[in-house]
Design a protein around this nucleic acid. Sequence first.
DNA 1: CTGAAAGCGCTTACAG
DNA 2: CTGAAAGCGCTTACAG
Lengths: 347, 347
Amino acid sequence: MKGIRQLAEQLDISIGTVSRALNGKPDVNDETRRRVLAAAEELGYVANQSGRSLRQGETKVIGLMIESSAEAVENADNFFLGVISGLQSVFARHKLDLIMLPCPSDEDPHEYLKRMVARRIVDAMIISNTQRIDRRIDLLSRAKIPFVAVGRSVSASNSPWIDLDFEGVADRAVERLIARGHRRIAITAPSSEVNLGYVFLDSYRRALERHDIAFDPSLVIRVRSSEQGGYQAAHELLLLEERPTAVILIYELMAIGLYRRLMESGVIPGRDLAVIGFRDAPRAQFLQPSLSCFRMSLYDLGAALGRMLLANMPAYREVYPDEACNIIWPLELTPGESDAFQVGAMV
Amino acid sequence: MKGIRQLAEQLDISIGTVSRALNGKPDVNDETRRRVLAAAEELGYVANQSGRSLRQGETKVIGLMIESSAEAVENADNFFLGVISGLQSVFARHKLDLIMLPCPSDEDPHEYLKRMVARRIVDAMIISNTQRIDRRIDLLSRAKIPFVAVGRSVSASNSPWIDLDFEGVADRAVERLIARGHRRIAITAPSSEVNLGYVFLDSYRRALERHDIAFDPSLVIRVRSSEQGGYQAAHELLLLEERPTAVILIYELMAIGLYRRLMESGVIPGRDLAVIGFRDAPRAQFLQPSLSCFRMSLYDLGAALGRMLLANMPAYREVYPDEACNIIWPLELTPGESDAFQVGAMV
DNA sequence: CTGAAAGCGCTTACAG
DNA sequence: CTGAAAGCGCTTACAG
């Protein structure tokens, strides 16, 4: 089976009618449509996307840009795989396909995106790993490519994004720890310029201020967002002169490395040091003592991202009229044993 | 900037010459080429892929099909992220872009691939998670789409694949354990129909036979290939009447769950039970006692897959004349402490 | 070395 | 309800 021409010849009918029948246009005789669909099915005909795209000016493909950096490789987690299912659940309704665009580690993300966009491989983009200043946002805005970002950015003046509620997490973690008598509360922060680090730290500082606890820069531990980073964080924490009684983590896998390093030193989470993790990850679920952390549905996040994106695409706008342009995605606290003690209660 | 027509108008030159200049054709005046390239750069012109594809009959895009099943989500590891870098290193030489095609979990992988192939979004495919009988291989062969499979299959009569050396791993693991006095050696196997399970078990049986050890079906523990599967495997293993003295794992993350369950019962790997893991994963690297396992370069595997694929594409065949059609990818043993004891040596 | 023209496979006004 | 034709943006023989 080659193209629509062969299919039309076989049916002894014009290619226009075949096209209309296949695309569900109303002005086609029922019997004709039946024959066309049957023949297409039998011969395995599917319209060549390049032909369609060229004619229609759209590809029916949505791109999700990811980065395959060495760090990402070492530190793969299920975040995007989980989100993808949610995205696809929305896109499937409109016969849109999702593809992932992995930016090579030796290529500038901005240049990569520029190339992909200019080639018109996709109609719209989802970008992630948003930086505090992210030129990709300007690029997409200027090129008028619909997009949505996972993560806020200073660059995103008017553009759509969904971000996890880092403020809420930091805030509730600090409040919870203070209520249990903690005053020296350490926090981890990413070593990169990724925007969420700023948001997280700001909220932590404000929460401390509310309780008249002075901000101590030595309690901000900058490490890579990875299991190894968690190990490193515990290591630095143990070296501090006046050791904190609690630590708040910013990335889901940190807890695993942190636990390991603590255990090596005989420091037991939930007894000697309170630990509050970030998102619950499948791999962290077996930690002993169980980790107090925050929970969310990756699938729901993906679905929300999908709807928000479609609400920003002219062709689908009217189907999603009430979508917000920006969402702070809430996380729910799951209490565990890792912070289940009161400071000073051991008298 | 719209299309090549606008660029040509701007330069007061024909679109044919612009195209030839941009595509590096030899018969273009140096000065003309310089002007064209400068203007394209300045205006951010990149050829519309649909136009090119339609004309040339190729997309310059290679697809990597992955599955975003619930199991994959819970169990994300770095395998594909690592392989991607290697693939891209080869594809970049030919200006080929790699995209990932995530098959929705509620769609049949065969139907999904059929659709993607028929739409002609990609020139060639890399498929993975190969099943013992895998209709995708017939589909791609019949459609004459160049492809390479990660993993052997009974369906792959003549088609290219690279597979990890499961025989070698099972064989060397058994030999190593027998040399240390083990006679009751358990082995894990996947609960699915994935082909590697058959290969792994066959090799295990043959190795036992060589040493006149009867095959005991109760020592084959079928679990999901995941951290949780490892936990489950340890659980079942501890329930066996005559407990084995050693266990061989088939999947990299199993070791983590297995260790956890063993520890819970006070069974120490490397003292009470010998454990040999599969591939070393970043997350397993901190296990205590350290895990004896096998090592390989994901990057190199990706590069080999890329070369093998190109060797099967008419347009690139001559550049890669000596590529093998099938490769059993070797893994190197990394001895650890988890099997460092001699059975019966404790007299 | 350059230009004019054909045509890749579709979809969609436009006639009838 | 159907057909004939235009044209989406490119690349590439073919003339000159």
